[in-house]
Design a protein around this nucleic acid. Structure first.
Length: 426
RNA sequence: GGAGGGAUGUCCGAACGGUAAGGAGCCGGUCUCGAAAACCGGUACGGCCUUUACGGCCUUCGGGGUUCGAAUCCCCGUCCCUCCGCCA
């Protein structure tokens, strides 16, 4: 959510910047409603002042036993109270309308973000390692998994439905090893506080993270209990300090969580996304930071490095992309994607998305910090990044490290977890 | 799921429907070489409004209602506690 006061003070500039993400944006109706609201507010506050003084007078008259005079005064005050109620209602209606508009506006993009509506206009910032050239036609991960009995989609479909993965045997062991490796890595090497949060979130949490109101259809919803199934731990961690005022000294606060993530993925389907690429349930270790406004963009750079470090440890080829204005999530002011090479498709897939959401989520969730003793609280900045999503990583590992005979070499970093250096045939 | 009890500031804690006591803590001061103690003063976080003032309005978990006026009465909800039931 953007700062209404800032919009009021600088509407042209803000509208211009928002239009780099969504050309439809117009602030005019918002400003008109704001103007009206403030006018009525002034009137009603004046009337309330009047009422407060009159009420005090009634109390005094009653204390002094001047009952008749008090009754006369009370009769007079009825009309005033009626008017106040009318105006109050109008103010609340306007406030609701203003909020409705405000919560749907995206965040202001940072000036370093390339301006474009096409996702192809992302900027490749850097690459790691050479693109692996296999001396044979690489097999699709599903084929490898089938030969080795690593995944069982048909039976998962029996249990839950299509596009739910089921890991079996060495597949299950590899998935657990990846989770455990990411978890240990960030606990020990990058210093994030580990958290196992609830997997369900209430409407307020979804709203704060900006999952609502726009992405209602992308999340699973349990109507009976008014709870949403976690789509990404960003949503959960974002709410860890909702409504709090943090101390400046404790910032930046760095958290990490492992969760399963659930997404409806309505409408998504296609040959390219067969197998583990796009599923309703996947595992992810998420990184999340609460920082001061001054440091957030530096913290974004280090967050990206923390996520990259895991890919490097796994010896994978990847690149870092800076997303253009039109391709970022609404809450983000600046986003880097980490994209890993998938040999069978000869293309990159996103395995991590690292964003600085500045004060956008903080304002929605009223997450603040006090810069110094006695000073007014300010909104924190929130940052999130996957560190990483395991399901797509498994695809990359199976395909990148496959041998001509279909065996899969286990990267050094995972050997302690798997107790083998090659995934054998079943 | 059922029955009770509760939620007031940084903390504790009061308030016949009449406009948020008191204490601790914290901040400032007196005293002191300095500190402690004592004493004096300040202290409702926070938000909104513009005529930026010694200003006004809102704020007793949240949302509604009754009333001239609600921390207080009524309704709905959230969270916490106790008991019963169920249960990995």
């Amino acid at each position: 959510m953007l700062d209404l006061k800032a919009i009021r003070e600088n509407p042209e500039e803000i509208e211009r910047r928002l239009k780099t993400r969504d050309p439809e944006v117009t602030l005019k109706p918002l400003l008109e409603k704001d103007e009206r609201r403030r006018r009525i507010l002034q009137e009603v506050e004046g009337l309330k002042h009047e009422r407060n003084e009159a009420s005090e007078e009634v109390a005094r008259l009653k204390r002094e036993g001047r009952e008749e005079e008090a009754q006369t005064r009370i009769r007079e005050l009825r009309a005033l109270s009626e008017r106040i109620k009318q105006l109050d209602d109008e103010v609340s209606r306007l406030e609701e309308e203003i909020r409705d508009i405000l919560v749907r506006l995206p965040n202001l993009p940072h000036e370093s973000v390339p301006v474009s509506f096409s996702k192809d206009d992302k900027v490749i910032v850097r690459e790691h390692k050479e693109r692996p050239e296999l001396p044979f036609e690489p097999k699709h991960h599903l084929e490898l998994a089938h030969e080795r009995g690593l995944l069982d989609f048909p039976r998962a479909a029996r249990i839950a439905g299509s596009r739910f993965p089921m890991y079996v045997g060495w597949g299950a062991r590899l998935e657990m090893a990846l989770i455990q490796f990411f978890w240990d890595f960030h606990c020990e090497k990058t210093g994030y506080i580990p958290v196992l949060p609830p997997y369900l979130g209430n409407p307020e949490s979804m709203f704060t993270a900006s999952q609502l109101p726009k992405f209602q259809d992308d999340v699973y919803y349990i109507e009976r209990d008014e709870l949403y199934l976690n789509p990404t731990a960003e949503t959960l961690l974002c709410n860890l300090h909702r409504g709090e005022i943090l101390n400046a000294e404790e910032l930046p606060l760095k958290y990490m969580a492992y969760t399963a993530c659930f997404r409806r993925e309505a409408g998504a389907a296609g040959e390219e996304e067969r197998g583990l690429i796009r599923v309703h349930q996947f595992n992810k270790v998420e990184l999340f930071k609460f920082t001061t406004p001054e440091t957030s963009f530096d913290e974004l750079e280090s967050l990206v490095k923390d996520a990259e470090a895991v890919l490097q440890a796994l010896e994978l080829h990847y690149r870092v992309a800076l997303l253009p204005t039109g391709d970022m999530a609404a809450q983000s002011a600046k986003t880097y994607d980490l994209e890993v090479w998938i040999p069978s498709q000869k293309r990159y897939y996103e395995v991590s998305s690292c964003s600085n959401c500045t004060d956008y989520q903080a304002r929605r969730g009223n997450i603040r910090y006090r810069p110094a003793r006695g000073e007014k609280p300010r909104y924190v900045h929130t940052l999130n990044g996957s560190g990483l999503a395991t399901s797509r990583l498994m695809v990359a590992i199976l395909e990148t490290f496959q041998e001509p005979d279909g065996r899969v070499r286990v990267p050094e970093a995972l050997r302690d977890y798997l107790k083998t250096d090659v995934i054998p045939p079943r």
